[in-house]
Design a protein around this nucleic acid. Structure first.
Lengths: 224, 224
DNA sequence: CTCACCTGTGTGACATTGTCACAGACTGCA
DNA sequence: TGCAGTCTGTGACAATGTCACACAGGTGAG
């Protein structure tokens, strides 16, 4: 139950479908859910678990990933501001177990609503339905593009891309360990180290402990 | 518009959500759509195209796949009896372009309904909503397991699995060319040939043109 | 301060998988 | 029979994954 008006305002800004919602839905929405705070590193959903609640992220970011027997990982997608752990929704609706892990990468503030409400609102509340549907659809196309990357792209290209999209706004620095990059891309740390080393000897980047500096942005972009 | 009662019966058996549907939905359903026949090999959806209709498969099977620059392919999933090209639905709902190819693997009979109806019924018809939702959710978990396979499993294991799940009921024969197997698994024909050859020299299978015979089911199962 | 310890990175050897260029083998049809 | 198209086999090499281990930098305890 959310009574605090500033929190309500915060939720409205994160979830545009709330603006313009009929008053009774809005009331029901705030009444049914509650705000939870998750520490960095805490698990949100566990593989194989049933999902009884849906978490809508108000602040922070969570990583949804798969993990192999050997300990290698691959990130499927991230859940951030205004999004929700939609795989949960998908489990709620198809009654399948959750097929991956989700972990908070930063401290996460989320609004949590019970599965039963998720279903009911889908029937009655068109904006809610569209929100959920389009999120699931986006995840599907998203995961499909992960498949495409993994199957068809070369590792150096993928790493170059990764560095570009994770760089500081000026495009010169990336804060990440080799292991973190490897876990996102579904490869091993050694491979990342090796390829970064190649980039470095080509004069494209400078490697430091825990960060990479892109020193030849123009040529680097060609690799990506 | 479907008037033929035997066709209506056929549709009802393929799509259980029609049984027990309110009469006006049933009428609207049969009025809005039409049956199409697709030849084997014909394309259903093309990558990057917008989707204006949703196809519900009554008979036959279609393959949804990605294709890389080098011509390599990987199958994301198949659409068969009672299912629908749900990626289309997902495009309809999120207004994203279709991110893959779909092709009829056998002659396909499908019931085609316009995108506008898909949306309208979602709001009003709970059985329809559940059908569409759970299908999208299934695809999502499905594609996620493709990612898992591709990233974490060894090729020999994946091929062994493939042969098992595509074998005749008695589990002894598989009708497929090496290229077909490769296209499903997202690898190249040479790799499939090589690994099958290994299986053959281990006495597990016998290779013929266009088919593979599993001659040591017990030991073969251990590879999978 | 020094040392043990933890995390992050570098490296070589080898296995697996992908790519390329061909060769050969089988099938259906003229 | 001979030809064309499809399917499979093979060797060389490149890219990636795995394993074992070395080393470097920082940090806290003593």
């Amino acid at each position: 139950m959310i009574k605090d008006l500033t929190v309500q305002t915060q939720l409205k800004s994160a979830f545009p479908f709330l603006s313009g919602a009929p008053a009774h839905f809005l009331t029901a929405f705030f009444e049914s859910g509650s705000i939870v705070q998750l520490e960095k590193g805490s698990h949100i959903c566990l593989e194989g678990r049933e999902c009884t609640h849906l978490a809508l992220v108000v602040e922070g970011s969570a990583r949804v990933y798969k993990i192999g027997e050997n300990g290698r990982e691959i990130t499927l997608y991230r859940v951030g501001f205004g999004e929700s752990c939609i795989l949960t929704a998908s489990c709620i609706l198809s009654s399948l177990p959750f097929p991956a892990f989700a972990v908070a990468e930063t401290p996460v503030t989320a609004f949590v609503i019970p599965a039963s409400k998720v279903r009911v609102w889908l029937a009655e509340w068109s904006a809610w339905r569209e929100y959920v549907f389009s999120l699931v659809a986006q995840r599907l196309t998203n995961v499909i593009s992960v498949v495409e990357e993994v199957v068809f792209r070369r590792m150096d290209e993928r790493i170059a891309n990764y560095l570009q999209s994770h760089s500081t706004p000026d495009g010169t620095r990336v804060s990440a360990t080799h292991q973190e990059i490897a876990s996102d891309l579904g490869t091993s740390r050694e491979v990342v180290s090796r390829i970064l080393k190649d980039f470095e000897s080509d004069g494209l980047v400078r490697i430091a402990r825990g960060s990479i500096e892109i020193i030849d942005i123009k040529h680097f972009a060609q690799r990506a």
